[in-house]
Amino acid sequence: MSDPQNTSDNPLGRDPHVLLRVISKFLIPLIALFAFYVQFHGDYGPGGGFQAGVILAASVILYALVFGLAEAKRAFPPRLIRYGMTLGVLLYGGTGVVNFILGGEFLNYSTLASDAATGQHYGILAIELGVLTTVTTVMIAIFYAFGSRQPETSDEDW
């Protein structure tokens, strides 16, 4: 098992987390996919923007935990966070303003389509998308903020 050349810096002679890395590489896309299922199936079963946002953020957080924060910041750049946080709130508020313009009350989605029930359906989809964007980016932002302040922890730390 052990490689005699490498024993000085690592007793196993290889990456000790290889199993973790392989399994999470398989799981992370599935977690993200599940988040979108929860998002768009939220009208018909349990779920919605909040849950989907947290699950989507959890996939990025898992990536950061297993592959390191620098890798995660390459995959999901911190630049996106500033836009995402604002965009979600604006999408939610913007839906209300569009209702205003179309002649309804603020956040009365019935005006979005000729049929009131269809309009409500579109409106809920739009605001859930806004919720998803804000919750995902804020959760990732909070994790990045705490994680970046961390001194490097070693395996023996626990």
């Binding site: 939220g42 009208d43 508020g93 359906h121």
Partner: peptide, 22 residues
């Protein structure tokens, strides 16, 4: 009658209590 989506929690959260969620 009005929203016609099965999940009542999502309907109330998104539409009837939309201000709250905002």
């Amino acid at each position: 009658e009005e929203i016609k989506i099965p999940n009542v929690v999502t309907a109330v959260l998104g539409s009837y209590r939309g201000y709250d969620t905002f």
